[in-house]
Amino acid sequence: MKDVDDKFLKNPDTEVPLREELRPRKVTTPDGQEIDIDPLRDYFCEAKPKVHPKAYSKIVEDFYNWARANSLWILGFGTGCGAIEMRPLMTPRFDAYRYGIQWRPTPRQANLLVISGYLSVKTLKRAIRAYEQMPQPKYVMGLGSCTINGGMYWDSYNTIKRLDDYLPVDMYVAGCMPRPEALLHGFMELKRVIKEGKGEGANLYAENFDQYKANQKAVIRDWDMPDYNW
């Protein structure tokens, strides 16, 4: 649907200055040396993500995929309303642990990022960081209509509408909000997709890295992190 009155034009993109503590500068060390520091480069590796090659034979790759499908470790990162639905999944009523699904506290230990609802631009930045820090092979699941087409936030000035512009999504679960049963079904479907060898989101991200970065930077105006947060 087009806006009926499209007289409003948003500001052309003005640069947002980098925060003071992130700018490259000269500092004097306690022993009197002058050194250059660039906080955005000094602590991060600049290597781009690489495509993960398939195993040398189909049967081995299938075995890997079977193993991957049976250990989905979810990053405990909740955005939007849908994060509420993860709590009943963890507890005995639905007990997702019996499917080899569990929640982990840090991105380094997780391989499934569940975007559980609308993403404001501010949260998108954190979600990208979290996603990039997860080890390969990794998957993204979009929960709820907000991640699919904006849902009820379709006209919001601050929430993105299509998650797959910014992160490679392997599986969507529709609903507003999806019930835990729907989520469980989504996990089962994701397992099937992975077993079929189609859970290639991370490779897609590596292949189209520049495109994804361009999309991300178009909405995250104060980009104050390195291009790849590994």
Binding site: M1, K2, D3, D5, D6, K7, F8, L9, K10, I148, N149, G150, W154, D155, S156, Y157, T159, I160, K161, R162, D165, A218, V219
Partner: peptide, 16 residues
């Protein structure tokens, strides 16, 4: 105008 802003900033998925 928040609708116009969101249309000029975020991509739509067709079919809505």
């Amino acid at each position: 105008d928040t609708l116009a802003y969101s249309q000029q900033t975020y991509n739509d998925r067709p079919g809505r």
